[in-house]
Simulated assay, not measured.
Amino acid sequence: MHTAIKFTLATLLMLLVFSSLTPRPAHADGAGGANEREIGIRTAAGDGVNTAEFYARWEARFIQEHVLDPWLPEGGTARWETALSYWQGGGDHAIVFAVGPTLEYPLRADGWRLALGIQPTLFSDYESDNRNLGGPFEFTSHIGLRWYPKVDWVVGARVQHTSNAGIYDANPGVDLIAVEIGSRF
Rank of each mutant, 00 (worst) to 15 (best):
E59T: 08
Q64E: 12
T162S: 15
F97Q: 03
E38G: 01
T51Q: 06
D152Q: 13
P136A: 15
N35K: 10
T102E: 11
I143M: 13
I143S: 09
V99C: 14
G173N: 02
G100E: 04
T102D: 12
F7G: 02
G173V: 02
E38P: 01
A60Q: 00
I95M: 04
A165W: 04
D169R: 09
N35A: 12
T51E: 08
T3V: 14
A94H: 02
A34F: 10
L13D: 12
R24S: 09
N132S: 14
D110Y: 15
T140V: 12
T8H: 08
A52Y: 00
A10T: 07
S19Q: 13
T51R: 00
I41L: 09
W153P: 02
Y168T: 04
R79G: 02
L16T: 12
D152F: 08
A44Y: 00
S124M: 08
E81R: 15
R131C: 03
P25M: 04
G48N: 13
P101E: 07
P172Y: 05
Y86S: 02
Y168M: 05
I181V: 15
D69C: 05
S128A: 11
L16S: 12
I118R: 02
A26I: 04
E38T: 15
N130H: 14
S128E: 08
D129E: 13
D92R: 03
E36N: 06
G75R: 10
W112I: 06
F62K: 13
Q88W: 10
S19H: 11
P106A: 12
R146T: 07
G40I: 01
L72W: 12
N132G: 07
H66C: 07
L103W: 04
G111E: 04
I167W: 05
T43H: 11
A60L: 02
G91S: 09
V155W: 07
L72G: 07
V96M: 11
R42V: 14
V67R: 00
E104Y: 06
S19A: 15
P73L: 04
G135N: 07
